[in-house]
Design a protein around this nucleic acid. Structure first.
Lengths: 239, 239
DNA sequence: GCCGTGTGCCAACCTGTGTTATGATCAGAC
DNA sequence: GTCTGATCATAACACAGGTTGGCACACGGC
């Protein structure tokens, strides 16, 4: 499960054993449940074992901005737990299984097994890279480009997580949630998806499943370049 | 200089010594010079010794999005150097002195002195927190709120870095650069600053110096809550 | 069966922000 | 001095995207 950490850094067996020896409490959280709320004091980090979750912030006028989407294998809550007081909320999109790991145990692990510490640090750096891309996406691209970009990101990440084919996947989000990812309104997301479909860049069956007609064209429309995900070479080649 | 790292985690003398023993090459970079360009392969991390710098991304239609602003003491380039290929550019706003530190030396330091490694990790986590706030700022707030928020952030951070008073500081950015931070156009930044001034929330003398009339009101207008900066308690109290 | 609720979809209208364009001011180069 | 290029300022107009409101399903609970 936590072997995703070895993605960017080679780990020794002893390191892997130490990870597996981490104390944790399994927990099931149902759809739309809160894992952490903004301003909470946190004691646990949380590893997503199955399901989908998002992180979001609420702004003054009640608007919501989703800042990232997470899937199986992601360590969603390093951020909040280390910094003690949560600067954002974590919410599930589907029923989820999570493993709650006490903060102390993780800090301890990082000290005793520096390779693991560095691996977790890398994970954080990649997270940050995705945030940067989202700032640019939301700040400087128009609605059509934003959505196309997001769909490309999901396609690649789901594929890497083994949750779907590159050109055909199940999207666990409503249009309202897509709007909160992109800084748009649900109405405009609807319009824009419709026009992407009219252009034959995507097709939708049922209400959540997306299939990408032409990856290259969609990537172009979305100004998408997978570099920011910092995938291993072979997976970057999937594009 | 690098003692900023000890901000979030207590370090022992041996750790501090190890930091100071890091090999580096000093370099002066003039205003608007590039430290790293997107897509470069990087070998060095870069510590800002003096001056101001930004990180930005260029999107498909030529638009630019600034994703963060850095000042004296910030380790600006951990991100790019660890991930090998830069996902964004780093550019100076003023003449700067930087210390270039080879990536190998930093990784090595993190392994040998886990406390320092964890401290750098924390620094990365705080960076990520700021990115999240920026996603929300640019995605879900209107122009007036965005700018007010940004001015509040600068006020606090400059103060913490010892570069200005809370309510009166020198802003090293043009309106065009402010526009690239906020996802607006220079014209609209101008309009909006003017109206903030008309509301007596700020006043400007000369072209770059800002004084904040009423911190509380500006923070309210900017929907600003310093929690995301994860400052130490005494500094958070400055607000 | 019925009803409530969440979601998708659509249309009409409105507004915040972008666009384009023109001057004013200032600092540096020569 | 005066040319040149940045930067700031302002105005008139255009449009992408927000807002409001209404309809139609699908689904689960009763």
């Amino acid at each position: 499960m936590v072997r995703k950490l070895s993605y960017w850094t080679a780990l020794e067996p002893a390191d892997a054993a130490a990870i597996l020896a981490l104390p944790y409490r399994s927990k099931k959280i149902e759809r739309l449940g809160h894992v952490v709320r903004e301003r909470d004091k946190t004691e646990f980090s949380c590893l997503l074992v199955s399901g989908f979750a998002i992180r979001h912030k609420i702004v003054g006028d009640g608007g919501r901005q989703i800042v990232s989407v997470h899937m199986k294998g992601d360590l969603v809550d390093l951020q909040n737990s280390f910094l003690r007081v949560a600067d954002h909320s974590v919410q599930t999109l589907t029923d989820c299984e999570v493993a709650m790991i006490p903060r102390e145990a993780i800090v301890d692990l990082a000290f005793r097994h520096p390779r693991v510490g560095v691996a977790m640090w890398f994970d954080t750096l990649v997270d940050a890279s995705v945030f940067r891309e989202w700032v640019a996406n939301v700040g400087r691209r128009d609605a059509r480009t934003r959505l196309a970009h997001l769909l490309c990101e999901f396609s690649l990440r789901l594929q890497v997580a083994g949750l779907g084919a590159a050109t055909d996947y199940e999207l666990p989000m409503t249009q309202e949630q897509l709007a909160d990812c992109t800084g748009l309104t649900p109405v405009h997301v609807n319009r824009t998806l419709k026009s992407l479909e009219a252009e034959r860049l995507i097709t939708r069956r049922g209400s959540r499943s997306v299939t990408i007609g032409d990856w290259k064209k969609l990537a172009e429309a979305g100004d998408f370049d997978s570099a920011y995900l910092h995938l291993a070479d072979d997976e970057a080649a999937l594009t």
